[in-house]
Design a protein around this nucleic acid. Structure first.
Length: 313
RNA sequence: CGCGGGGUGGAGCAGCCUGGUAGCUCGCAAGGCUCAUAACCUUGAGGUCGUCAGUUCAAAUCUGACCCCCGCAA
């Protein structure tokens, strides 16, 4: 099949790789335009663009408002199917109807659950024990099309967003190729999503990573895992922002201290009281510093029991 | 020219404002104590204080340029 690939983020790279290695033909990759980002606001390429350049693929980067202008170009490519994976822009109806067959979309959740931009993060934050990938036929509204195939995977207790994304990207890329093969041979069914079971996973914001020590320890632990990478779960110590990279939690709690207060300082972990139990900080990153183990942090900072991690500076 | 923090023995930090002997916690090595220990005590090794230039009798510290790392912002 002749395929046009739409994708932007790291999650999409695995799928593109799998397609290139399959017997199908990827005509070109369409990804988001380079944006000013990072310190000094330099131009940043999407992971898909970087990968596609390596592979010598033709790349198009239309702005959202220009998508409709590209219709003639897209039509001229004469594709059988458009494959959309973590592209980040909504395709207008005119484009969805262009390919000879239809458009499909790989989404990192078991639809109809977790429609939206951050299904992987939210699955972890919400303490789900399993999630998966789904392939749907693209419709006009976000992640709402009928399901063609899906695959479940378990979320390990210590998976963070990064690890789970890798697993899902891998699982998803395989399912994608298998599903395209099935579609090619006509051996597939469309199953409408159960509207009663729809849930949403909205884009995370900076503030999503803010740790509320009055929450339950397990919730904080899940937030730290789920926000790993970006936006990162954070708290404040003596006015400085501290990102919590890795943690654990257990049910013991020191009643002498309030939520947010340090109740034990050991090389193995800094224990901080939450509402009902204790969060054990293992790895962290103070602002302006690199990621460090808590043993290193302790060595350089004069921590005391009762010191407070706060919600604001 | 988006805003901001930082580069000091192997690791994490203090010292810088108010120039004048290189400091703390940890790690490492040796010895000691102990039934024993990732515990404790003693001793020790290890540093061109990011780079270059300037000011000065004297620069980790003041000035300028450059290199590298990170937080915010997306």
């Amino acid at each position: 099949m002749k395929i046009v690939f739409f994708g932007s983020s790291k999650f999409a790279v695995e799928s593109l790789r799998a397609l290139l290695e399959s017997r199908h033909e990827v005509i070109c990759a369409i990804t988001q335009p380079d944006r000013e980002k990072g310190r000094g606001l330099h131009l940043g390429k999407t992971p898909v663009k970087i990968f596609a350049e390596e592979k010598g693929l033709k790349i198009y980067q239309p702005f959202r408002k220009d998508l409709k202008k590209e219709i003639d170009l897209l039509r001229s490519l004469d594709a059988d199917m458009f494959v959309v994976v973590a592209y980040g822009l909504i395709l207008p109806k005119e484009i969805i109807n262009l390919p000879k067959l239809f458009c499909i979309n790989l989404h990192a959740s078991l639809l109809p659950a977790y429609r939206g931009a951050a299904p992987i993060n939210w699955a972890i934050i919400n303490n789900e024990k399993q999630t998966g990938v789904s392939i749907i036929k693209l419709s006009e509204s976000m992640d709402a099309g009928p399901i063609i195939s899906s695959k479940k995977i378990v979320i390990d207790k210590d998976d963070n967003a990064f690890a789970l994304e890798e697993k899902l990207a891998h699982t998803g890329s395989k399912l994608l190729v298998d599903t395209i093969n099935s579609i090619e041979s006509g051996n597939y069914k469309l199953k409408e999503q159960d509207k009663a079971k729809v849930t949403f996973a909205p884009k995370l914001t900076r503030q999503s990573g803010s740790i509320d020590w009055n929450d339950k320890a397990e919730n904080i632990y899940n937030l730290i895992r789920g926000c790993f990478g970006w936006p990162g779960a954070f708290t404040y110590y003596k006015g400085k922002l501290i990102k919590i990279i890795r943690s654990d939690w257990d049910k013991s709690r020191d009643p002498d201290y309030e939520p947010g207060q340090i109740c034990s300082i050991q090389k193995e972990g800094i224990r901080v009281n939450a509402a009902d139990a204790t969060v054990v900080i293992k790895e962290l990153q103070p602002e302006g510093k690199k990621i460090m183990s808590c043993a290193e942090f302790i060595a350089g900072h004069k921590l005391a029991k009762g010191d407070t991690f706060a919600i604001s500076p």
